[in-house]
Amino acid sequence: MSIDFRELPDLAVRTLGGAVVYANDEAFAARENLISAGPSVFDPSSFGHKGKVYDGWETRRRREAGHDEAIVRLGAAGVVKGVVIDTSWFKGNYPPEASVDGLCLDGHPSVDELVGHEGWQPLVPPQAIKGDAENPFEVVGDAATRRYTHVRLRIHPDGGVARLRVHGQAIADPSVVDALGVVDLAAAENGATMIDSSNRFYGSSTNLLLPGPVRSMGEGWETARRRDDGNDWVHVALAAEGHVRVAELDTSYFLHNAPGWASLRGRRAGGEWFELLARTALQPDTRHRFVLGDTPAADEVRLDIHPDGGMARLRLFGSLTDEGRAELGRRW
């Protein structure tokens, strides 16, 4: 199934552990804003000592040839399928062109190592971009199959960018997974992705796979109110094939709009669904943990909520099968 790359996790977002480790200039607005969660906001009356306050990254007007750049360490290293260069609110001060490069450098490299490294590979060649707009670019060819730990945004020649979204699939380090033994097979940082969902009216279903507890209802997945006899659901591709032993269904912050019930099913891709968790009542604003026992191997899981509502996180703790471990190694 082909999906819009923007439905994949944002590997750069701060809530996944991303960081903007370098920018050659941030005279008007701080580089850290590039990877903030949520859309950029704008207050027309907000001015500071440096001028208009923008929720983004903005450099000074260049008076010489060249370009400005920022380097982002991805919160989860992985394959990049597309990027969004968002210039929201930058109308007369956005860069006319931008490009994005990727680098795979494990460990904890210094800024000097990153800036001067010769291994940067083009993900998006210089492209014209629009002001006050989301500018999406799909990564194609060999670049869309490689693992990256860092990305570099270059703007030509200067200006402001509100957000940089780097959508893709994380690839977990097999040695770390082996050392941990039990891992969250539904975690985006381990490589899990959302295949599909019935509804994402108030919040993206991908939020279910993000790390850490939510800080508000807006950081979870919430559907529109159903007016029929059906129910809402999400279909998740696990990080790799494994046995799910414990399921955590978290409705934190969902007080009057949590689902009444939920159930879980698993399968190997293309096979028959089998039951992991029978339809079970849920409570509002609660982290529910269910021991599933000895379950068959699965690489896909479907969560059904009845009839609708919102959830904060989905955690599926378990261990990899031999095939799952081998597949993770091949990706790495």
Results as ranks from 00 to 15, higher is better:
1 M>P: 13
1 M>V: 14
4 D>I: 07
6 R>K: 13
11 L>E: 14
21 V>P: 00
24 N>V: 06
26 E>H: 10
28 F>N: 12
31 R>L: 02
38 G>F: 04
38 G>R: 01
39 P>W: 01
42 F>R: 15
49 H>F: 14
50 K>W: 15
62 R>Q: 15
63 R>G: 11
65 A>Q: 15
74 L>C: 11
77 A>P: 09
79 V>F: 11
80 V>S: 01
80 V>Y: 03
86 D>P: 11
87 T>V: 06
91 K>Q: 12
94 Y>G: 09
96 P>T: 04
103 L>M: 07
104 C>P: 06
107 G>N: 08
107 G>S: 07
108 H>Q: 10
126 P>L: 03
127 Q>H: 05
131 G>R: 01
133 A>W: 08
136 P>F: 05
147 R>S: 12
149 T>G: 11
154 R>E: 05
155 I>R: 09
161 V>F: 07
162 A>T: 13
168 G>I: 01
174 P>H: 07
175 S>D: 13
176 V>W: 06
181 G>Q: 07
181 G>T: 00
182 V>Y: 07
187 A>H: 15
189 E>K: 13
190 N>Y: 14
190 N>F: 14
194 M>Y: 09
196 D>C: 00
200 R>N: 14
202 Y>F: 15
204 S>P: 14
208 L>F: 04
212 G>R: 11
219 E>M: 08
221 W>Q: 01
222 E>L: 05
224 A>D: 14
229 D>R: 08
235 H>F: 11
236 V>F: 11
239 A>I: 12
242 G>C: 08
243 H>Q: 08
243 H>V: 13
244 V>R: 05
250 D>C: 06
251 T>K: 11
253 Y>G: 04
255 L>E: 12
262 A>T: 09
263 S>A: 15
272 E>P: 01
276 L>W: 04
279 R>V: 08
280 T>M: 01
282 L>D: 00
282 L>M: 07
286 T>M: 09
290 F>V: 02
294 D>P: 12
294 D>E: 15
295 T>I: 05
298 A>R: 10
298 A>T: 12
301 V>W: 06
304 D>C: 07
306 H>I: 10
307 P>K: 08
309 G>Y: 00
313 R>F: 00
317 F>A: 14
328 L>Q: 04
